[in-house]
Design a protein around this nucleic acid. Structure first.
Length: 676
DNA sequence: GGGAGAATTGCTG
DNA sequence: TTCCACAGCAATTCTCCC
């Protein structure tokens, strides 16, 4: 269809589904002959009116606003600006061209409909029938028979069934897929001992040495490798051979399934190949980036990246622009990256939308335990804990806290996660997740800086000598040295980072894979236990409870509250030094702070506790430093912190898409710079 | 005001 | 009835300190 004709029908109000591209894409192999209009209509009708659909519409609106905004920026460029950017772009293109390396031969192997093929091997009766691996909620893979109906990965099962009523669902079985994946990797290893596994069903091989040693061409090696895979696993795969990884991946998709495509290591061949290649075929360019490039510049092919290079340089960041120009030149990575260390670990669970806070807490307990368990398996501890929430309207929120020291115990994770969650309640949620990052780092310098405080760090602890000292609620300074020395620095030394496609191989860590597996013995000791001891919270935390302190006048009890701040139990005794401040501290009329006068209603349990701790810490600090004459102006300081907290709250509310948040331009291109 | 670090969001596979 | 899980990374914004 001609472009003009296509765009006119896409705006047809009688066919609203034509602009709804949430799931369907022609980019997927095996879907070339699908009736796109029919599939789009069914997907649209099945989705219309749902919360998911509404959220997708919101996202669509933001994207259009962004395109308009960038178009406006573009329109403001003067002739002088354009000329200046053209010079800059030309220079950059020359510099990038100079990095071109045609000396390597890369092969990308992609197993055909891997999960579905494995399931068919296990149950041959599935052969020839439309089948999908997954559930009514989500499909992981569909076989080629199902793809003829428009069924594809990342599509909800209930829509897939509507598209193909005879569709057979098979639940995922990762043990099975891992087994077959290992078999394929045994083959890959023979061709490149340092191959890069991108996922269970994809790998990059540098076959340069193999070709030279055997006197074979890339095409011959690809042919032989595919035959070996089929012979040893019963599964078929497709291959792409090219001078770099980016192009090899594109090539492997061309003759799918069970085929291969070879791009010669010649500049002219590469430029010809890339000239008409749709940008969406490039790894790293997804729906959003495609729409932006098309919407602003009319770019649909890689070649056009170069034609619009001046505008690209004018509107995008250096990294994004470099990526786009590299795509236009057909450049990609040719090196074999070093093994890198995992940067984060997370787990998340989707559930039926609910506002049941008891359920949230239980989910948080489960997530904390799972995360702690996973961390322990790899001997990791982290400093930054991120809580991810998805509301029943599909709005995703993340809330993070960075601690001065590493944590990894489920108790610590739960403690901090609960704090993060409480600040978001009440809420109706459908997903909760926890992510740990900043592994095995320490931030002593900053954290121990008494001048650098946060609202929540005025907590008083007592060390082994009985000396009371101020420490951060997130800090466990007394054992920090032990903790630091308990790790093998080698085991966690940062390694050279590499591109996105390469990092993916690291995600599928195979303990038997010497390139990716981590020997737990590397870490030497059971760090988990060390840290758990070290990180004993100043106040004991009971499972499923958030422990806070009630600051009733003259009687400071430790009280366990649920997420709403309701009292559920009273537990441990308070250290004497904390229980006996020299001056009474209480809430006037159960509302107003007797020290600084700030008003905090009884329902602000956590805030009142922090406020109390703040005053107490100040007092003890004064006593310790024998500087009783120092005027702390607590009200000012607290007010400032309070304002900070409030401002953050306001920011959070503002950040809600429903409040019209403005998405930064380059967030659309966050990923794009990683693939070349 | 500038720099560093943290928090947050979004894209991508 | 029903739209995943996970990880990496870029960019922006905010906060705090000097």
């Amino acid at each position: 269809m001609e472009e003009s004709e296509k765009s006119s029908t896409e705006n047809d109000p009688a066919r609203p589904w034509q602009s709804y591209n949430t799931v369907y894409t022609i980019a997927k192999a095996g879907m070339e002959g699908v009736d796109k209009e029919k599939v789009q209509r069914i997907v649209y009708e099945m989705s219309k009116g749902s919360k998911y659909f509404e959220n997708e519409e919101k996202k669509e609106v933001y994207m259009k606003q962004k395109i308009e905004s960038m178009r406006a920026q573009l329109a403001k460029l003067t002739a002088v600006d354009i000329s200046r950017y053209q010079k800059f772009a030309d220079k950059r293109i020359v510099e990038l061209e100079a990095t071109r390396d045609l000396s390597r031969i890369w092969l990308h192997v992609d197993m055909d409909a891997f999960y579905a093929a494995v399931e068919t091997l296990s149950d041959p009766s599935l052969k020839g029938k439309p089948m999908a691996v997954g559930s009514m909620s989500m499909i992981s893979t569909a076989n080629y028979e199902a793809r003829k109906f428009g069924v594809r990965a990342a599509m909800p099962g209930f829509i897939a069934r509507k598209l193909c009523p005879k569709l057979i669902f098979v639940p995922t079985d990762f043990k099975k897929y891992t087994y077959y994946s290992d078999l394929t990797r045994q083959v890959f290893q023979r061709y490149d001992p340092n191959f890069l596994a991108a996922s269970l069903d994809e790998a990059y091989l540098d076959i340069t040495n193999f070709c030279n040693e055997k006197g074979m061409t890339g095409a011959e090696v690809a042919e032989e490798l595919r035959e070996s895979v089929h012979k040893e696993t019963g599964l078929t795969c497709s291959a792409g051979v090219a001078p770099n990884r980016l192009l090899a991946k594109v090539c492997s998709d061309i003759n799918k399934p069970n085929g291969q495509f070879v791009l010669p290591n010649e500049r002219m061949a590469v430029m010809t190949f890339i000239s008409s290649l749709p940008i969406r075929k490039i790894g790293g360019i997804g729906k959003v980036t495609e729409n932006i490039l098309k919407g602003i510049f009319g770019i649909t092919t890689c070649e056009e990246m170069l034609q619009k290079s001046n505008f690209i340089c004018a509107l995008f960041s250096r990294t994004s622009a470099d990526f786009f120009l590299s795509v236009g030149l057909g450049l990609g990575r040719t090196d074999t990256p070093q093994v890198t260390q995992r940067k984060s670990m997370s787990n998340e669970r989707t559930f039926s939308p609910t506002d049941d806070e008891a359920l949230f807490l239980q989910k948080l307990v489960d997530l904390s335990e799972n995360l702690a368990s996973d961390l322990k398996k790899e001997g990791l501890c982290g400093r930054t804990l991120t809580l991810k929430l998805k509301t029943s309207c599909f709005e995703v929120r993340t809330r993070a806290v960075t601690l001065p020291d590493n944590i990894c115990s489920s108790e610590d994770i739960l403690k901090h996660a609960t704090k993060l969650l409480k600040a978001e309640l009440p809420a109706s949620l459908r997903l909760m997740g926890l992510r740990m990052s900043h592994f095995n780092e320490s931030k002593k310098g900053v954290a121990s800086d008494p001048k650098q405080r946060t609202l929540s760090n005025f907590i008083v602890t007592e060390d082994a000598s009985g000396r009371v000292s101020e420490s951060n609620i997130y800090d466990d300074n007394t054992l920090s040295i032990d903790r630091e020395t308990s790790f093998s620095s080698d085991a966690h030394a940062p390694c050279e980072s590499f591109d996105f496609m390469d990092t993916h191989q690291m995600l599928d860590v195979d303990p038997t894979d010497k390139r990716h597996g981590r020997d737990e013995a590397e870490t030497g000791v059971d760090n988990h236990d060390v840290v758990r001891d070290a990180a004993n919270p100043p106040y004991p935390i009971g499972a499923g409870e958030v422990v806070v302190r009630d600051s009733s006048p003259g009687l400071l009890e430790e009280t366990s509250l649920d997420l709403l701040g309701r009292v559920v139990s009273c537990t441990d005794e308070e250290p004497a030094s904390l229980l006996n401040p020299k001056e009474p501290f209480f809430w006037l009329n159960d509302y107003q702070c007797s020290v600084c006068g700030i008003e905090l209603p009884p329902s602000f349990v956590e805030e009142r506790q922090e406020h109390f701790d703040f005053h107490l810490a100040e007092r003890l600090q004064d006593e310790e430093s024998n500087n009783l004459n120092r005027v702390l102006k607590p009200k000012q300081r607290f007010t400032h912190k309070d304002q900070v907290s409030e401002s953050r709250q306001r920011k959070k509310q503002k950040a809600s898409p429903s409040d019209g948040k403005h998405i930064p331009i380059d967030m659309f291109f966050a990923k794009t710079s990683q693939n070349f």
